[in-house]
Design a protein around this nucleic acid. Structure first.
Lengths: 225, 225
DNA sequence: GCAAAAGTGTTAAGGATACACCCATGA
DNA sequence: TCATGGGTGTATCCTTAACACTTTTGC
Protein backbone atom coordinates (compact mmCIF):
# COMPACT_ATOMS: atom_id res chain seq x y z
CA UNK A 1 0.00 0.00 0.00
CA UNK A 2 1.18 3.50 -0.80
CA UNK A 3 0.94 6.46 1.47
CA UNK A 4 -2.40 8.08 1.92
CA UNK A 5 -1.55 11.71 2.36
CA UNK A 6 -2.99 14.65 0.50
CA UNK A 7 -1.18 14.86 -2.84
CA UNK A 8 0.96 17.96 -3.40
CA UNK A 9 -1.30 19.38 -6.08
CA UNK A 10 -4.15 19.59 -3.56
CA UNK A 11 -4.75 23.30 -3.24
CA UNK A 12 -5.89 24.16 0.24
CA UNK A 13 -8.73 26.62 0.54
CA UNK A 14 -10.74 28.01 3.40
CA UNK A 15 -14.02 26.14 3.63
CA UNK A 16 -17.02 27.89 5.11
CA UNK A 17 -20.74 27.39 5.44
CA UNK A 18 -23.34 30.13 5.32
CA UNK A 19 -26.92 29.63 6.37
CA UNK A 20 -30.07 31.36 5.14
CA UNK A 21 -32.39 30.58 8.04
CA UNK A 22 -36.04 31.41 7.60
CA UNK A 23 -38.98 31.63 9.96
CA UNK A 24 -42.43 33.16 9.89
CA UNK A 25 -43.48 35.88 12.17
CA UNK A 26 -45.71 38.87 11.95
CA UNK A 27 -47.32 37.18 8.96
CA UNK A 28 -44.14 37.69 7.02
CA UNK A 29 -41.23 35.49 5.96
CA UNK A 30 -38.17 36.51 7.91
CA UNK A 31 -34.50 35.74 7.45
CA UNK A 32 -31.99 35.60 10.28
CA UNK A 33 -28.99 37.90 9.93
CA UNK A 34 -26.00 38.69 12.11
CA UNK A 35 -24.09 41.90 12.41
CA UNK A 36 -20.42 41.40 11.75
CA UNK A 37 -17.95 42.49 14.42
CA UNK A 38 -14.80 42.20 12.36
CA UNK A 39 -13.27 43.31 9.14
CA UNK A 40 -14.00 42.99 6.37
CA UNK A 41 -17.51 44.39 6.32
CA UNK A 42 -17.47 45.19 10.06
CA UNK A 43 -20.92 46.33 11.29
CA UNK A 44 -22.57 45.08 8.09
CA UNK A 45 -25.30 42.51 8.22
CA UNK A 46 -24.54 39.08 6.86
CA UNK A 47 -25.88 35.55 6.80
CA UNK A 48 -24.72 33.55 9.81
CA UNK A 49 -21.86 31.26 8.89
CA UNK A 50 -18.25 30.42 9.48
CA UNK A 51 -15.48 27.99 8.88
CA UNK A 52 -15.91 24.25 8.82
CA UNK A 53 -13.79 22.53 11.44
CA UNK A 54 -11.56 19.52 10.84
CA UNK A 55 -13.52 16.31 10.95
CA UNK A 56 -16.84 18.13 10.88
CA UNK A 57 -19.50 17.34 8.29
CA UNK A 58 -20.92 20.25 6.35
CA UNK A 59 -24.35 20.11 7.92
CA UNK A 60 -22.80 19.85 11.38
CA UNK A 61 -20.86 23.02 10.72
CA UNK A 62 -24.05 24.73 9.63
CA UNK A 63 -25.85 23.69 12.81
CA UNK A 64 -22.98 24.77 15.00
CA UNK A 65 -22.68 28.18 13.40
CA UNK A 66 -26.37 28.73 13.68
CA UNK A 67 -26.29 27.94 17.37
CA UNK A 68 -23.20 29.84 18.34
CA UNK A 69 -23.77 32.94 16.27
CA UNK A 70 -27.41 33.50 16.92
CA UNK A 71 -28.61 31.75 20.08
CA UNK A 72 -31.69 30.39 18.41
CA UNK A 73 -33.90 28.41 20.71
CA UNK A 74 -34.81 25.42 18.61
CA UNK A 75 -33.15 23.05 16.23
CA UNK A 76 -33.88 23.81 12.60
CA UNK A 77 -36.86 21.85 11.32
CA UNK A 78 -35.21 21.55 7.94
CA UNK A 79 -31.63 21.97 6.79
CA UNK A 80 -30.29 21.40 3.34
CA UNK A 81 -27.29 22.41 1.36
CA UNK A 82 -28.27 24.18 -1.84
CA UNK A 83 -25.29 25.71 -3.63
CA UNK A 84 -21.57 26.23 -3.27
CA UNK A 85 -20.15 29.66 -3.93
CA UNK A 86 -16.54 29.49 -5.02
CA UNK A 87 -15.67 32.60 -6.98
CA UNK A 88 -11.98 33.20 -6.15
CA UNK A 89 -12.68 36.87 -5.40
CA UNK A 90 -15.84 36.53 -3.36
CA UNK A 91 -13.93 37.18 -0.12
CA UNK A 92 -11.11 39.76 0.10
CA UNK A 93 -9.29 37.72 2.73
CA UNK A 94 -8.35 34.98 0.30
CA UNK A 95 -9.77 31.89 -1.24
CA UNK A 96 -12.82 31.00 0.80
CA UNK A 97 -15.40 28.66 -0.62
CA UNK A 98 -18.82 28.68 1.00
CA UNK A 99 -21.30 25.85 1.00
CA UNK A 100 -24.63 27.64 1.38
CA UNK A 101 -27.44 26.07 3.37
CA UNK A 102 -31.15 26.68 3.63
CA UNK A 103 -32.69 26.28 7.08
CA UNK A 104 -36.26 26.47 8.34
CA UNK A 105 -36.70 27.43 11.95
CA UNK A 106 -39.98 26.44 13.47
CA UNK A 107 -42.61 28.54 15.11
CA UNK A 108 -41.44 30.11 18.32
CA UNK A 109 -37.86 30.40 17.22
CA UNK A 110 -38.05 34.11 17.37
CA UNK A 111 -35.77 35.29 20.11
CA UNK A 112 -32.25 35.61 18.86
CA UNK A 113 -29.18 37.26 20.25
CA UNK A 114 -25.74 37.73 18.87
CA UNK A 115 -23.20 35.20 20.01
CA UNK A 116 -19.52 34.56 19.52
CA UNK A 117 -17.88 37.20 17.43
CA UNK A 118 -20.97 38.98 16.18
CA UNK A 119 -22.42 42.26 17.36
CA UNK A 120 -25.95 40.93 17.29
CA UNK A 121 -28.52 38.94 15.43
CA UNK A 122 -31.97 39.88 14.20
CA UNK A 123 -34.77 38.95 11.88
CA UNK A 124 -35.36 40.86 8.65
CA UNK A 125 -38.06 40.60 6.00
CA UNK A 126 -36.71 37.98 3.64
CA UNK A 127 -38.01 39.62 0.49
CA UNK A 128 -36.51 43.01 1.31
CA UNK A 129 -33.30 42.49 3.24
CA UNK A 130 -30.82 45.25 4.14
CA UNK A 131 -27.54 45.54 2.26
CA UNK A 132 -25.46 42.47 2.96
CA UNK A 133 -21.75 41.72 3.24
CA UNK A 134 -19.78 39.76 0.64
CA UNK A 135 -21.98 38.01 -1.92
CA UNK A 136 -24.65 37.28 0.66
CA UNK A 137 -27.38 39.13 -1.22
CA UNK A 138 -26.90 36.66 -4.04
CA UNK A 139 -26.87 33.71 -1.67
CA UNK A 140 -30.08 34.89 -0.03
CA UNK A 141 -31.78 35.37 -3.39
CA UNK A 142 -30.91 31.83 -4.41
CA UNK A 143 -32.06 30.49 -1.05
CA UNK A 144 -35.44 32.13 -1.56
CA UNK A 145 -35.71 30.60 -4.98
CA UNK A 146 -34.92 27.19 -3.59
CA UNK A 147 -37.40 27.61 -0.78
CA UNK A 148 -40.14 28.41 -3.27
CA UNK A 149 -39.35 25.38 -5.39
CA UNK A 150 -39.18 23.07 -2.38
CA UNK A 151 -42.47 24.35 -1.08
CA UNK A 152 -44.32 22.95 -4.02
CA UNK A 153 -43.44 19.30 -3.83
CA UNK A 154 -42.28 18.88 -0.29
CA UNK A 155 -44.49 19.63 2.66
CA UNK A 156 -41.94 22.15 3.82
CA UNK A 157 -44.53 24.71 4.86
CA UNK A 158 -45.48 22.60 7.87
CA UNK A 159 -42.00 23.11 9.28
CA UNK A 160 -42.76 26.76 9.86
CA UNK A 161 -45.72 26.05 12.12
CA UNK A 162 -46.33 24.50 15.52
CA UNK A 163 -47.65 20.99 15.78
CA UNK A 164 -51.24 22.09 15.37
CA UNK A 165 -52.25 24.92 13.13
CA UNK A 166 -55.18 26.22 11.13
CA UNK A 167 -55.54 26.24 7.38
CA UNK A 168 -55.52 30.05 7.20
CA UNK A 169 -52.21 29.99 9.06
CA UNK A 170 -50.79 27.47 6.62
CA UNK A 171 -51.98 29.52 3.71
CA UNK A 172 -50.22 32.57 5.12
CA UNK A 173 -46.97 30.59 5.14
CA UNK A 174 -47.40 29.75 1.47
CA UNK A 175 -48.25 33.32 0.61
CA UNK A 176 -45.30 34.70 2.54
CA UNK A 177 -42.87 32.38 0.80
CA UNK A 178 -44.31 32.76 -2.68
CA UNK A 179 -44.81 36.47 -2.12
CA UNK A 180 -48.24 36.48 -3.73
CA UNK A 181 -51.83 35.87 -2.64
CA UNK A 182 -53.50 32.51 -3.13
CA UNK A 183 -57.16 31.63 -3.57
CA UNK A 184 -58.57 30.33 -0.30
CA UNK A 185 -60.86 27.68 -1.74
CA UNK A 186 -58.35 26.27 -4.17
CA UNK A 187 -55.68 26.23 -1.51
CA UNK A 188 -57.83 24.26 0.95
CA UNK A 189 -58.93 21.80 -1.70
CA UNK A 190 -55.40 21.14 -2.82
CA UNK A 191 -53.89 20.77 0.62
CA UNK A 192 -56.63 18.53 1.96
CA UNK A 193 -56.55 16.39 -1.19
CA UNK A 194 -52.92 15.56 -0.48
CA UNK A 195 -54.01 13.72 2.63
CA UNK A 196 -51.08 15.01 4.65
CA UNK A 197 -53.26 16.83 7.15
CA UNK A 198 -55.77 15.54 9.66
CA UNK A 199 -58.23 17.61 11.65
CA UNK A 200 -57.47 17.48 15.34
CA UNK A 201 -61.07 18.12 16.38
CA UNK A 202 -60.15 21.18 18.39
CA UNK A 203 -60.83 24.70 17.26
CA UNK A 204 -58.89 27.84 17.74
CA UNK A 205 -60.83 30.83 18.94
CA UNK A 206 -60.10 34.49 18.39
CA UNK A 207 -61.80 37.30 16.57
CA UNK A 208 -64.30 35.90 14.11
CA UNK A 209 -65.33 32.34 13.54
CA UNK A 210 -63.04 29.80 15.20
CA UNK A 211 -60.82 27.78 12.86
CA UNK A 212 -60.40 24.04 12.71
CA UNK A 213 -57.04 22.85 13.94
CA UNK A 214 -55.01 20.41 11.89
CA UNK A 215 -51.89 18.39 12.45
CA UNK A 216 -49.54 16.46 10.18
CA UNK A 217 -51.00 13.07 9.30
CA UNK A 218 -49.26 10.05 10.74
CA UNK A 219 -46.82 8.70 8.19
CA UNK A 220 -46.27 12.04 6.51
CA UNK A 221 -42.54 12.42 6.61
CA UNK A 222 -40.51 15.58 6.71
CA UNK A 223 -38.83 16.59 3.49
CA UNK A 224 -35.18 15.71 3.22
CA UNK A 225 -32.23 15.83 0.81
CA UNK B 1 -8.36 49.25 7.73
CA UNK B 2 -7.45 45.96 9.35
CA UNK B 3 -5.48 43.25 7.71
CA UNK B 4 -7.23 41.05 5.23
CA UNK B 5 -5.65 37.66 5.77
CA UNK B 6 -7.41 34.40 6.38
CA UNK B 7 -8.36 34.26 10.04
CA UNK B 8 -6.68 31.56 12.15
CA UNK B 9 -9.86 29.56 12.64
CA UNK B 10 -10.10 29.01 8.86
CA UNK B 11 -9.62 25.29 8.49
CA UNK B 12 -7.94 24.50 5.23
CA UNK B 13 -9.28 21.57 3.27
CA UNK B 14 -8.49 20.06 -0.08
CA UNK B 15 -11.03 21.30 -2.61
CA UNK B 16 -11.83 19.15 -5.59
CA UNK B 17 -14.36 19.00 -8.40
CA UNK B 18 -15.79 15.82 -9.87
CA UNK B 19 -17.72 15.72 -13.10
CA UNK B 20 -20.47 13.38 -14.20
CA UNK B 21 -20.29 13.92 -17.95
CA UNK B 22 -23.04 12.40 -20.05
CA UNK B 23 -23.48 11.81 -23.76
CA UNK B 24 -25.69 9.67 -25.94
CA UNK B 25 -24.37 6.98 -28.13
CA UNK B 26 -25.57 3.62 -29.23
CA UNK B 27 -29.04 4.78 -28.28
CA UNK B 28 -28.02 4.74 -24.64
CA UNK B 29 -27.10 7.34 -22.09
CA UNK B 30 -23.41 7.04 -21.34
CA UNK B 31 -21.26 8.44 -18.59
CA UNK B 32 -17.58 9.23 -18.96
CA UNK B 33 -15.26 7.51 -16.51
CA UNK B 34 -11.51 7.43 -16.02
CA UNK B 35 -9.36 4.63 -14.71
CA UNK B 36 -7.28 5.77 -11.78
CA UNK B 37 -3.51 5.35 -11.98
CA UNK B 38 -2.73 6.07 -8.35
CA UNK B 39 -3.63 5.03 -4.87
CA UNK B 40 -6.07 4.99 -3.36
CA UNK B 41 -8.37 3.00 -5.62
CA UNK B 42 -5.66 2.46 -8.25
CA UNK B 43 -7.07 0.82 -11.42
CA UNK B 44 -10.64 1.48 -10.29
CA UNK B 45 -12.95 3.52 -12.42
CA UNK B 46 -13.98 6.95 -11.16
CA UNK B 47 -15.60 10.15 -12.28
CA UNK B 48 -13.10 12.54 -13.83
CA UNK B 49 -12.09 15.25 -11.40
CA UNK B 50 -9.30 16.78 -9.44
CA UNK B 51 -8.18 19.62 -7.29
CA UNK B 52 -9.19 23.19 -7.83
CA UNK B 53 -6.22 25.45 -8.43
CA UNK B 54 -5.61 28.76 -6.69
CA UNK B 55 -7.52 31.57 -8.33
CA UNK B 56 -9.57 29.18 -10.39
CA UNK B 57 -13.37 29.27 -10.36
CA UNK B 58 -15.18 26.00 -9.70
CA UNK B 59 -16.57 25.64 -13.19
CA UNK B 60 -13.17 26.43 -14.67
CA UNK B 61 -11.66 23.63 -12.65
CA UNK B 62 -14.36 21.28 -13.87
CA UNK B 63 -13.67 22.22 -17.50
CA UNK B 64 -9.94 21.84 -17.07
CA UNK B 65 -10.18 18.42 -15.46
CA UNK B 66 -12.54 17.23 -18.12
CA UNK B 67 -10.11 18.30 -20.83
CA UNK B 68 -6.89 17.07 -19.31
CA UNK B 69 -8.14 13.77 -17.97
CA UNK B 70 -10.18 12.61 -20.88
CA UNK B 71 -9.21 14.36 -24.11
CA UNK B 72 -12.77 14.98 -25.06
CA UNK B 73 -13.16 16.67 -28.38
CA UNK B 74 -15.76 19.28 -27.70
CA UNK B 75 -16.66 21.74 -25.02
CA UNK B 76 -19.50 20.60 -22.80
CA UNK B 77 -22.84 21.88 -24.01
CA UNK B 78 -24.02 22.23 -20.47
CA UNK B 79 -22.18 22.40 -17.17
CA UNK B 80 -23.66 22.96 -13.76
CA UNK B 81 -22.71 22.38 -10.22
CA UNK B 82 -25.26 20.24 -8.40
CA UNK B 83 -24.06 19.15 -4.97
CA UNK B 84 -21.06 19.35 -2.67
CA UNK B 85 -19.88 16.20 -0.99
CA UNK B 86 -18.08 16.92 2.26
CA UNK B 87 -18.24 13.88 4.50
CA UNK B 88 -14.94 14.04 6.43
CA UNK B 89 -14.25 10.39 5.67
CA UNK B 90 -15.17 10.28 2.02
CA UNK B 91 -11.50 10.22 0.99
CA UNK B 92 -8.87 8.23 2.91
CA UNK B 93 -6.17 10.76 2.09
CA UNK B 94 -7.66 13.43 4.30
CA UNK B 95 -10.28 16.10 4.24
CA UNK B 96 -11.21 16.55 0.63
CA UNK B 97 -14.44 18.28 -0.26
CA UNK B 98 -15.77 17.75 -3.75
CA UNK B 99 -18.05 20.07 -5.64
CA UNK B 100 -19.83 17.74 -8.04
CA UNK B 101 -20.77 18.91 -11.51
CA UNK B 102 -23.12 17.65 -14.17
CA UNK B 103 -21.95 18.00 -17.77
CA UNK B 104 -23.59 17.26 -21.10
CA UNK B 105 -21.27 16.49 -23.97
CA UNK B 106 -22.74 16.97 -27.40
CA UNK B 107 -23.11 14.55 -30.21
CA UNK B 108 -19.78 13.52 -31.67
CA UNK B 109 -17.94 13.77 -28.38
CA UNK B 110 -17.32 10.11 -28.34
CA UNK B 111 -13.64 9.56 -28.73
CA UNK B 112 -11.91 9.80 -25.40
CA UNK B 113 -8.50 8.83 -24.21
CA UNK B 114 -6.88 8.91 -20.86
CA UNK B 115 -4.77 11.95 -20.15
CA UNK B 116 -2.59 13.20 -17.36
CA UNK B 117 -2.38 10.77 -14.51
CA UNK B 118 -5.11 8.35 -15.56
CA UNK B 119 -4.75 4.95 -17.17
CA UNK B 120 -7.54 5.62 -19.60
CA UNK B 121 -11.01 6.96 -20.13
CA UNK B 122 -14.10 5.32 -21.51
CA UNK B 123 -17.87 5.54 -21.77
CA UNK B 124 -20.11 3.32 -19.67
CA UNK B 125 -23.88 2.91 -19.58
CA UNK B 126 -25.01 5.55 -17.13
CA UNK B 127 -27.78 3.47 -15.60
CA UNK B 128 -25.52 0.48 -14.92
CA UNK B 129 -22.02 1.72 -14.20
CA UNK B 130 -19.15 -0.45 -12.99
CA UNK B 131 -18.03 -0.27 -9.37
CA UNK B 132 -16.65 3.17 -8.69
CA UNK B 133 -13.96 4.61 -6.43
CA UNK B 134 -14.68 6.71 -3.33
CA UNK B 135 -18.32 7.82 -3.10
CA UNK B 136 -18.60 8.24 -6.84
CA UNK B 137 -21.47 5.79 -7.18
CA UNK B 138 -23.51 8.10 -4.96
CA UNK B 139 -22.40 11.16 -6.89
CA UNK B 140 -23.36 9.52 -10.17
CA UNK B 141 -26.77 8.51 -8.85
CA UNK B 142 -27.49 12.06 -7.77
CA UNK B 143 -26.27 13.40 -11.09
CA UNK B 144 -28.71 11.14 -12.91
CA UNK B 145 -31.53 12.35 -10.70
CA UNK B 146 -30.64 15.94 -11.43
CA UNK B 147 -30.41 15.27 -15.14
CA UNK B 148 -33.90 13.80 -15.13
CA UNK B 149 -35.33 16.76 -13.27
CA UNK B 150 -33.59 19.27 -15.51
CA UNK B 151 -34.82 17.50 -18.63
CA UNK B 152 -38.39 18.33 -17.83
CA UNK B 153 -38.30 22.06 -17.64
CA UNK B 154 -35.13 22.97 -19.47
CA UNK B 155 -34.57 22.03 -23.06
CA UNK B 156 -31.51 20.11 -21.99
CA UNK B 157 -32.16 17.19 -24.32
CA UNK B 158 -31.17 19.31 -27.32
CA UNK B 159 -27.65 19.57 -25.93
CA UNK B 160 -27.12 15.88 -26.60
CA UNK B 161 -27.80 16.22 -30.32
CA UNK B 162 -26.19 17.89 -33.32
CA UNK B 163 -27.61 21.11 -34.68
CA UNK B 164 -30.22 19.33 -36.73
CA UNK B 165 -31.94 16.19 -35.58
CA UNK B 166 -35.13 14.22 -36.03
CA UNK B 167 -37.95 13.84 -33.54
CA UNK B 168 -37.32 10.11 -33.13
CA UNK B 169 -33.73 10.94 -32.22
CA UNK B 170 -34.87 13.48 -29.66
CA UNK B 171 -37.32 11.00 -28.22
CA UNK B 172 -34.52 8.47 -27.81
CA UNK B 173 -32.60 11.01 -25.74
CA UNK B 174 -35.57 11.48 -23.43
CA UNK B 175 -36.10 7.76 -23.11
CA UNK B 176 -32.44 7.10 -22.41
CA UNK B 177 -32.33 9.71 -19.65
CA UNK B 178 -35.65 8.82 -18.07
CA UNK B 179 -34.95 5.13 -18.55
CA UNK B 180 -38.47 4.36 -19.71
CA UNK B 181 -40.37 4.37 -23.02
CA UNK B 182 -42.51 7.31 -24.06
CA UNK B 183 -45.56 7.43 -26.31
CA UNK B 184 -44.55 8.67 -29.74
CA UNK B 185 -47.65 10.71 -30.47
CA UNK B 186 -47.79 12.39 -27.11
CA UNK B 187 -44.10 13.13 -27.22
CA UNK B 188 -44.32 14.85 -30.58
CA UNK B 189 -47.37 16.85 -29.60
CA UNK B 190 -45.76 18.07 -26.42
CA UNK B 191 -42.42 18.99 -27.93
CA UNK B 192 -43.86 20.76 -30.92
CA UNK B 193 -46.36 22.62 -28.75
CA UNK B 194 -43.48 24.17 -26.82
CA UNK B 195 -42.46 26.04 -29.95
CA UNK B 196 -38.76 25.46 -29.34
CA UNK B 197 -38.26 23.47 -32.51
CA UNK B 198 -38.56 24.46 -36.14
CA UNK B 199 -38.55 22.12 -39.10
CA UNK B 200 -35.54 22.72 -41.30
CA UNK B 201 -37.23 21.53 -44.48
CA UNK B 202 -34.64 18.85 -45.03
CA UNK B 203 -35.24 15.18 -44.43
CA UNK B 204 -32.91 12.48 -43.27
CA UNK B 205 -32.90 9.30 -45.25
CA UNK B 206 -32.06 5.81 -44.07
CA UNK B 207 -33.96 2.62 -43.70
CA UNK B 208 -37.68 3.29 -43.74
CA UNK B 209 -39.47 6.55 -44.27
CA UNK B 210 -37.20 9.62 -44.12
CA UNK B 211 -37.62 11.78 -41.05
CA UNK B 212 -38.14 15.51 -40.91
CA UNK B 213 -35.14 17.39 -39.58
CA UNK B 214 -35.58 20.01 -36.89
CA UNK B 215 -33.40 22.60 -35.29
CA UNK B 216 -33.63 24.74 -32.20
CA UNK B 217 -35.90 27.72 -32.78
CA UNK B 218 -34.26 31.12 -32.87
CA UNK B 219 -34.54 32.70 -29.46
CA UNK B 220 -34.65 29.41 -27.58
CA UNK B 221 -31.88 29.77 -25.10
CA UNK B 222 -29.79 27.08 -23.52
CA UNK B 223 -30.61 26.15 -19.97
CA UNK B 224 -28.37 27.62 -17.32
CA UNK B 225 -27.87 27.64 -13.56
C1' DG C 1 -76.73 43.11 15.05
C1' DC C 2 -72.41 43.92 13.43
C1' DA C 3 -67.64 43.15 12.55
C1' DA C 4 -64.35 39.75 11.58
C1' DA C 5 -62.55 35.73 9.98
C1' DA C 6 -63.70 30.70 8.55
C1' DG C 7 -65.71 27.76 5.57
C1' DT C 8 -67.81 25.94 1.25
C1' DG C 9 -68.89 24.14 -4.77
C1' DT C 10 -69.15 24.66 -9.50
C1' DT C 11 -67.62 25.62 -13.99
C1' DA C 12 -64.31 26.10 -17.69
C1' DA C 13 -59.99 25.41 -19.79
C1' DG C 14 -55.71 23.23 -20.50
C1' DG C 15 -52.61 19.45 -20.07
C1' DA C 16 -51.72 14.51 -19.71
C1' DT C 17 -52.72 9.85 -21.04
C1' DA C 18 -54.18 5.98 -23.69
C1' DC C 19 -54.59 4.02 -27.95
C1' DA C 20 -54.01 1.93 -33.79
C1' DC C 21 -53.39 2.73 -38.27
C1' DC C 22 -51.42 4.70 -42.70
C1' DC C 23 -47.18 6.61 -45.21
C1' DA C 24 -42.73 6.94 -47.57
C1' DT C 25 -38.68 4.97 -48.75
C1' DG C 26 -34.86 1.35 -49.90
C1' DA C 27 -33.81 -3.16 -50.83
C1' DT D 1 -43.84 -6.20 -52.37
C1' DC D 2 -42.07 -6.20 -48.12
C1' DA D 3 -39.58 -4.64 -44.27
C1' DT D 4 -38.47 -0.61 -41.75
C1' DG D 5 -39.14 3.24 -39.34
C1' DG D 6 -41.88 7.97 -39.63
C1' DG D 7 -45.94 10.22 -39.07
C1' DT D 8 -50.78 11.31 -37.60
C1' DG D 9 -55.90 12.28 -34.32
C1' DT D 10 -59.31 11.62 -30.88
C1' DA D 11 -61.59 10.71 -26.52
C1' DT D 12 -61.04 10.73 -21.67
C1' DC D 13 -59.39 12.11 -17.38
C1' DC D 14 -57.35 15.02 -14.19
C1' DT D 15 -55.54 19.19 -12.65
C1' DT D 16 -55.80 24.05 -12.34
C1' DA D 17 -57.94 28.54 -12.12
C1' DA D 18 -61.59 31.66 -11.54
C1' DC D 19 -65.17 33.16 -8.87
C1' DA D 20 -69.19 34.95 -4.19
C1' DC D 21 -71.82 33.89 -0.57
C1' DT D 22 -72.96 31.77 4.04
C1' DT D 23 -71.55 30.52 8.81
C1' DT D 24 -69.82 31.09 13.35
C1' DT D 25 -68.17 33.49 16.89
C1' DG D 26 -66.98 37.83 20.18
C1' DC D 27 -68.23 42.26 21.27
Amino acid sequence: MGTLALPPQATQVGLAVDIAAFAMHGGELQVLLVQRAELPHARDWALPGGFVQPGEALHEAALRELRTETTVELEPRHLEQFYTFGDPRRDPRGRIVSVAHLAVLGHGTVRVAGGGHTLGAAWFPAHRPPGLAFDHALILARALGRLQVRLEYANLALEFLPETFTLPELQKVYEAILNRPLDKRNFRKRLLAQGLLVASGERRSGVGRPAQLYRRAKGAKAATL
